[in-house]
Design a protein around this nucleic acid. Structure first.
Length: 823
RNA sequence: GCCGGAGUGGCGGAAUUUGGUAGACGCAAGGGACUUAAAAUCCCUCGGUCUUUAAGGCUGUGCCGGUUCAAGUCCGGCCUCCGGCACCA
């Protein structure tokens, strides 16, 4: 062991050692409890950044800890390697996306290894390889067969910068999730996955996600957006047609004063007689927040009142939700109210708030209101339902409508089907052929994979690059053998990441996506770690895929991720680290300067994992100082440590006759084992675990051994400290471990256990309060009974001074902690 | 607007599980030791304020109330910040 801590010298050595020994290579072993630890795999964009480092270090600590605890731990890594940046780099630099991606992977893999992360690299996955994306195609065909993949023309989100369609989940505040370009609408024929078929289950099983952060579950629930209501038919006056509306507020049905339709409402042609009106409707902008509308000229009949209501087109009514038609109740819906005021339409109050009930006579409602009353209340002007509370009226009116055949109860979801077609090159080809006579024909399974053609791809805007590759596009129909044309769109890359965690279980299967037995053994993922940005996107798609694959019959679980940890961002100078802000810290630079252990330690110590981490160069130096202190401490005590290890002086030595300071160190050691273990087990609060380790090291440093017993305790404490440090700073721990004579890796050891007996203090500091205020402290034996505590407290000179000439009302004793004297 | 989460020293953060010494651990700052000097290292101080010889007193966890012997922690009412959704009928 060198005298000076030189991370560069030791880190490389142990990284090679771990890799050579295959330390973190795993296979299924039914004798061992399994643990599947997974970090969201990266897109190989070029270099890793601090966000990656933080993410992977958190997973690495958990992995190493679980291994020391005796688990068979699967910890794989791979590359989410299809996607736009590769294609854009290819266009601007003239390199092939595959080459660009391959170089990045090689570079990033090397960077990752320098952090000292323990992955089973034999399970590495690269999604842009045919051996992987073949199974995307296979799943697509399975879903097609089940009606879960289908093609339809619709208005879709279009990113003009990325030149492709986006799913709803990929539009963030109207901007593209990847490049922040304003998303436009286009009408296109696209492939969809019918995620809405699973809306109910995805929502209900949110309750089973007990290991997920509450806010992520809430975001998923909101995204799915269930609402209960009724659909009601409003007959069009003078016609046999009807307008079907959806409402969740059937209790306000008597207050409907007009009907609003989406400008895309299919029946519109029949309702609009005047051509000029049609032109005005055409001009309505759905993007405008300003409410605008046009009267169609038609009327519809309220089935409950028989009233004739004017039918309008309103720019805020969405065709995509409900039926594309609503009943407008201006008195009880603010949007309808604004619309009614603008176009001078009638307002009819049918709900009164609780507070009004006492002093407002029913029937005498004020139509001159300044805003809609949207809460529930008591019905008025509602015929037989007047006087009911909203909650009862909702039930009553829904039942009445159903009984009379005027409407039915309906559940609606905000969730839309997942559009998976992308008009780009660098993705999985959709395995479909279009034939003049046979129509849409799936590529037969035995012809998979449909290979992404190599080499040629272009930069033409608006069309799929694959459509320009004749060799690819022109093919034979698998059905009739006549010439046909391939689908030239590729799949959304989120398809790739929706099942990669299954592939890791048996990544080399050629004839099936994965081995069901391996999946049965490893799944679900016990700990998944990644950024909050996927709270809906990737996590929702993966849950959907899991349920579909279950229904196909190839897996048996309902949910893929048992526990989820969403780590916070890495912040510098108040903003997320990014190239554009110029506040990035290069992990390579830090590792070269301080070593990986320092970088790891700082990432873990500066904040609990779920919170944002404020970067501090000085803080990194603090972590480096700590490791140096440990180094010096261990070096100075190397002989004691080696002796302790050789003679295997574990916790078996007698401690009953130890001197007070040695006993104190021994106690501190057991307390630290307990604290570190609990901090990891409870909620991965590594920051406080490391703080406890620092305390232990400070205590060891201030301990001077005088006797053999003292040396035994010192050796024991140091050895336990090294074991506790191992998951956080693996290189230095391995160096110490081997340096003191360990025959095998520190990671083949077992995590230390604490002895509860020893953690307990035999003397405690009694806090003495008077009227709840701290007045004195006193050392007393831990086992002292209430009477004894009272006696000692009252004997305390400071206390007796306080108590002079005052009478005590009450004394409260909290055993082992404090006494409060009320005077 | 709706739904989450959070407000604690100069800073990152402890203590909230189970009401019981607020500020662990670290960073920064100030002082000192060592050194020709500097770096490194080590030691001391470190919420505010009053008194100061000592010890201590008062005050302090976003704000206002409440419960309690005792509240950062529980209850009621606000304020601010962050995140998500947002014309979803």
């Amino acid at each position: 062991m060198e005298k000076k801590y030189n991370p560069q010298a030791i880190e490389k050595k142990w990284q090679e050692y771990w890799e050579k020994e295959g330390h973190f290579r795993v296979k299924e072993d039914s004798d061992l409890p399994k643990f599947y630890c997974l970090e969201m795999f990266p897109y190989p964009s070029g270099k890793i950044h601090m966000g990656h480092v933080r993410n992977y270090v958190i997973g690495d600590v958990i992995t190493k800890y679980k291994k020391l605890k005796g688990f068979n731990v699967l910890h794989p890594m791979g590359w989410d390697s299809f996607g736009l940046p590769a294609e854009n780099a290819a266009i601007s630099h003239g390199v092939h996306p595959a080459a660009w991606t391959g170089e990045n992977i090689a570079y990033m893999k090397n960077q990752i290894k320098k952090i000292g992360l323990c992955y089973d690299w034999q399970r590495e996955i690269t999604t842009c390889k045919a051996e992987y994306y073949k199974w995307n195609q296979w799943f697509f065909l399975k879903m097609l067969k089940l009606g879960l993949a289908y093609k339809k023309a619709s208005f879709v989100n279009w990113c003009p910068s990325c030149d492709t369609v986006l799913a709803n989940e990929q539009v963030v505040n109207g901007l593209c999730w990847r490049c922040d370009t304003t998303v436009t609408r286009r009408e296109l024929e696209q492939w969809f996955f019918k995620i809405t078929a699973y809306a109910e289950e995805l929502l209900n099983s949110c309750n089973a996600l007990t290991g997920w952060p509450e806010r992520v579950v809430v975001m998923q629930r909101n995204w799915i957006g269930r609402s209960e209501g009724v659909e009601v038919d409003f007959r069009v006056a003078g016609s046999d047609k009807a307008i079907r509306i959806f409402t969740t507020r059937q209790d306000t049905l008597y207050g409907a004063t007009f009907i609003s339709l989406s400008k895309k409402y299919p029946l519109l042609d029949a309702l609009v007689k005047d051509r000029e009106v049609g032109r005005q409707i055409e001009k309505l902008s759905e993007d405008s927040r300003e409410k605008e509308g046009v009267f169609t000229g038609s009327y519809a009949i309220n089935p409950l009142t028989g009233d004739k209501l004017p039918v309008w087109v309103a720019n805020f009514v969405l065709m995509e939700y409900g039926t594309g038609a609503i009943m407008a109740v201006p008195a009880h819906d603010q949007r309808d109210f604004e619309f009614a005021r603008k176009y001078n339409l009638p307002v009819k109050v049918v709900i009164l708030p609780e507070s009004h009930m006492k002093h407002t006579e029913t029937g005498k409602n004020k139509d001159k209101i300044s805003e809609a009353y949207e809460d529930e209340g008591m019905l008025v002007n509602s015929d037989r339902f007047s006087g009911l509370q909203s909650i009862d009226a909702k039930k009553g009116i829904a039942c009445f409508l159903e009984k009379e055949g005027l409407g039915k109860k309906v559940i609606n979801y905000k969730l839309r089907d997942w559009g998976v077609s992308r008009q780009r090159y660098w993705g999985t080809p959709i395995p479909i052929v279009y034939c003049e006579s046979c129509g849409i024909v799936p590529v037969p399974e035995n012809e998979l994979p449909v290979l992404l053609p190599d080499g040629v791809f272009s930069n033409s805007k608006g069309a799929s690059p694959l459509s320009e590759i004749t060799d690819f596009k022109e093919t034979r129909c698998p059905g009739c053998g006549e010439s046909a044309r391939r689908e030239t769109d590729t799949m959304d890359t989120f398809v790739d990441s929706s099942w990669y965690f299954l592939r890791y279980c048996s990544p080399h299967e050629n004839d099936r996506p994965f081995d069901p037995d391996a999946v049965l053994y490893w799944m679900p993922v016990d700990q998944y770690i990644g950024g909050i940005e996927h709270a809906v996107l990737h996590l929702l798609y993966s849950r959907f895929f899991t349920k579909v694959l279950r229904d196909i019959g190839i897996i048996k679980m309902d949910e893929p991720f048992k526990n989820l940890l969403t780590q916070g961002m890495v912040i510098k100078d108040g903003a997320k680290m990014s190239k554009s802000k110029g506040n990035v810290i290069d992990p390579d630079y830090l590792i070269n300067r301080y070593g990986a252990d320092t970088v790891r330690l700082f990432c873990l110590f500066a904040a609990p994992p779920e919170k944002d981490l404020e970067w501090s160069d000085k803080g990194v130096e603090g972590s480096y100082r700590f490791l140096n202190r440990i180094w010096v401490l261990t070096y100075n005590n190397r002989e004691v440590l080696m002796l302790s290890h050789r003679e295997n002086k574990n916790d078996s030595f007698s401690f009953s006759h130890l001197k007070p300071n040695a006993l104190r160190l021994l106690r501190k050691t057991h307390q630290t084992i307990k604290k570190v273990t609990n901090d990891i087990e409870r909620n991965y609060h590594f920051n406080t675990a490391i703080a406890a380790l620092m305390e232990l090291m400070n205590e060891i440093a201030s301990f001077t051994p005088l006797s053999e017993d003292d040396k035994n305790v010192l050796g024991f404490s140091l050895k336990q400290g090294i074991l506790l440090l191992a998951p956080f700073a693996p290189h230095i721990a391995e160096e110490f471990w081997k340096g003191m004579g360990g025959s095998q890796s520190v990671f083949n050891e077992t995590w230390p256990l604490w002895d509860e007996k020893i953690t307990r203090e035999d003397e405690i500091e009694l806090v003495i309060q008077i009227n709840g205020k701290l007045r004195s402290k006193l050392m007393i034996p831990a086992g002292l009974d209430d009477e004894g505590i009272k006696e000692s407290a009252l004997r305390d000179p400071r206390i007796s001074e306080y108590l002079q000439s005052r009478c005590m009302k009450k004394i409260i004793v909290v055993k082992g902690k404090l006494i409060n004297i009320v005077i």
